[in-house]
């Protein structure tokens, strides 16, 4: 296992390096830079900017240097945790998005847990009670969840949570905690607000996962090894969990790699609508304003999540499935 992990880690680093180049190229692609956008905005407001000031700023931000150098400075900074400087907000990127990263992670981890916790029992039930009333009912609900647009669900749930629980509309916490330091009250407030976005972002994923788990399990339930286990006298529930469910798990584990970035990017619009202080709205704004380093840090954040997700799922697969661990090239 050791050499495999090392090789995978090396590949991860390489992937991230290549991604950083791509990210940098892409955020540099639109014509002009932050300063041109900035000057345009000032002009639109009827203000004149003296050329010396522009040159000074350009020099100060390093925008006059060759692209390669700019990239190296940026990438070198990333390595030591320096995410660069936000032109627009005039603060280091790290200060700007530190909290946002954490809250994004909280929302997404909660969503993944929600998806798994809801999808597994339902998937199991629908597979073992195929073509029953319960199966049809849950399947219908699942399709409803798949088909409902996220933003609509978001608006409905926001309304309901406000009506029933008096939760403040939008955001991940009550307004009074917005700029307050972390405290027990703030954490509780976050938890109180969390369920709406989690349900909204997770619904479609849950529905998709229920369908997949059901299909996978149905494939496995009639395999000969299940009959063997029945003939051994294994009790039904234990049998279901030990054999077919274990086999049906593989696609889910393999899916973790896709799940993380999908949830992160899928939540951008929803976050904007619900004005969640997550990375989504910030990324949109940064891209629009050509605020390079904010956008770059965000995209790299996505890339890191993707790569880590893949890594985790690959390692878990190898742990779960001896055929992958031991048999890679032995396919006859």
């Amino acid at each position: 296992m050791g050499p495999y992990l090392i090789r995978r880690a090396g590949l991860m680093a390489l992937t991230l390096a290549v991604t950083s180049v791509l990210v940098f190229v892409i955020i540099q692609l639109p014509p002009g830079d932050y300063l041109t956008t900035y000057i345009e905005e000032l002009r639109a407001q009827g203000e004149m900017v003296p050329p010396e000031r522009i040159d000074y700023m350009r020099e100060q931000y390093g925008l006059d240097r060759p692209l390669v150098e700019q990239y190296l400075v940026w990438a070198g900074g990333l390595l030591v945790g320096d995410l660069g400087y936000s032109f627009e907000h005039s603060v280091p990127v790290r200060a700007l998005i530190g909290d946002v990263f954490i809250l994004t992670l909280v929302v997404n981890v909660a969503t993944v847990l929600f998806v798994y916790i809801v999808a597994f029992p339902i998937g199991l039930y629908t597979a073992t009670h195929r073509y029953s009333v319960g199966d049809y009912g849950l399947t219908f609900l699942g399709f409803l969840g798949l088909a409902t647009p996220n933003f609509l669900l978001a608006l409905i749930l926001l309304y309901l949570s406000n009506r029933w629980f008096g939760t403040s509309i939008g955001g991940l916490m009550d307004p009074e905690y917005l700029d307050a330091p972390w405290s027990i009250g703030k954490v509780l407030s976050v938890i109180e607000h969390l369920w709406v976005p989690v349900v909204v972002i997770g619904t479609a994923g849950t529905a998709a996962m229920i369908r997949r788990l059901r299909a996978n399990l149905l494939d496995e339930l009639h395999r000969p090894y299940v009959t063997t286990a029945r003939a051994k006298g294994v009790p039904p529930t234990r049998l279901l969990v030990k054999y077919p469910l274990r086999m049906a798990l593989n696609p889910f584990v393999a899916d973790i790699g896709n799940l993380l970035p999908q949830l992160v990017s899928g939540s951008v619009i929803v976050s904007a609508i619900m004005s969640l202080p997550t990375t989504g709205p910030l990324l949109l704004r940064a891209l629009a304003a050509q605020d390079y380093y904010v956008a770059g840090a965000m995209l790299m954040f996505l890339a890191v999540l993707t790569v880590i997700g893949q890594f985790v799922s690959d390692v878990l697969l190898a742990v779960l499935d001896p055929r992958i661990r031991l048999g890679g090239g032995l396919a006859k």
């Binding site: 000969p224 063997t228 006298g233 055929r323």
Partner: peptide, 28 residues
């Protein structure tokens, strides 16, 4: 799937199946 039936299976009556390739779980 009564208790008595479970106690019987694999204990007093056991079966050797046709397909050795698929009669065993690949994960255990």
């Amino acid at each position: 799937d009564s208790r008595a039936m479970l106690a019987l299976r694999g204990n007093r009556v056991a079966t050797v199946f046709q397909e050795p390739m698929t009669a065993l779980s690949p994960l255990h």
